[in-house]
Amino acid sequence: MKASEIPAFVDEILETGCDIRAVGHDKYVIGDADLSPAAYEKIKHRLGDIEDVYGDRDFLKLEIVAYLRSVGRYVDLGKNGSE
């Protein structure tokens, strides 16, 4: 994955119905908890395809976090781990 592909990667994740958010300033999560089991079964292969297309992105974690924060897709946690 290239840094220039981060917006497209985020858009593709969102198009599946999953959420993607920065957590603080150094992590991000892709959430599928809001999907029913049936809905998840329908999109799990699409998530795998996205993974295959974009490949390794660990080295871009901070850039992905910065992008997510720049577009308002983030959660900051307090001292006790809550929002």
Rank of each mutant, 00 (worst) to 15 (best):
M1L: 09
K2T: 12
K2E: 15
A3E: 15
I6D: 07
I6A: 07
A8M: 10
F9E: 08
V10W: 00
D11S: 14
D11M: 06
E12P: 02
L14Y: 05
E15F: 00
T16M: 05
T16L: 02
T16I: 03
T16C: 01
G17N: 02
G17S: 04
C18R: 05
C18L: 10
I20G: 06
R21M: 13
R21K: 14
R21A: 11
R21N: 14
A22T: 02
A22C: 06
A22M: 02
V23G: 01
V23N: 01
G24K: 07
H25P: 00
H25D: 08
D26P: 01
K27C: 07
K27H: 14
V29I: 15
G31I: 03
D32F: 14
A33P: 00
D34M: 13
S36A: 11
S36W: 07
P37S: 06
A38E: 14
A39Y: 03
A39R: 15
A39G: 10
Y40T: 00
Y40K: 12
E41Y: 12
K42Y: 09
K42N: 11
I43A: 06
I43L: 04
K44G: 04
H45W: 11
R46K: 15
R46G: 08
R46L: 12
L47F: 06
D49P: 01
D49H: 11
I50K: 02
D52V: 13
D52M: 11
D52G: 04
V53R: 14
V53Y: 06
V53D: 14
V53S: 07
V53C: 03
V53A: 12
D56P: 07
D56I: 03
D56V: 06
D56M: 07
D58C: 07
D58E: 13
D58L: 09
F59A: 12
F59M: 11
F59H: 15
L60K: 02
L62E: 08
E63H: 06
I64N: 02
I64P: 04
V65A: 06
V65H: 00
A66P: 02
Y67T: 09
L68T: 10
L68C: 05
R69F: 00
S70L: 07
G72K: 05
R73L: 15
R73Y: 11
Y74Q: 03
L77N: 01
L77D: 00
G78C: 04
G78A: 10
K79I: 09
K79F: 08
N80C: 10
G81I: 01
G81M: 06
E83T: 12
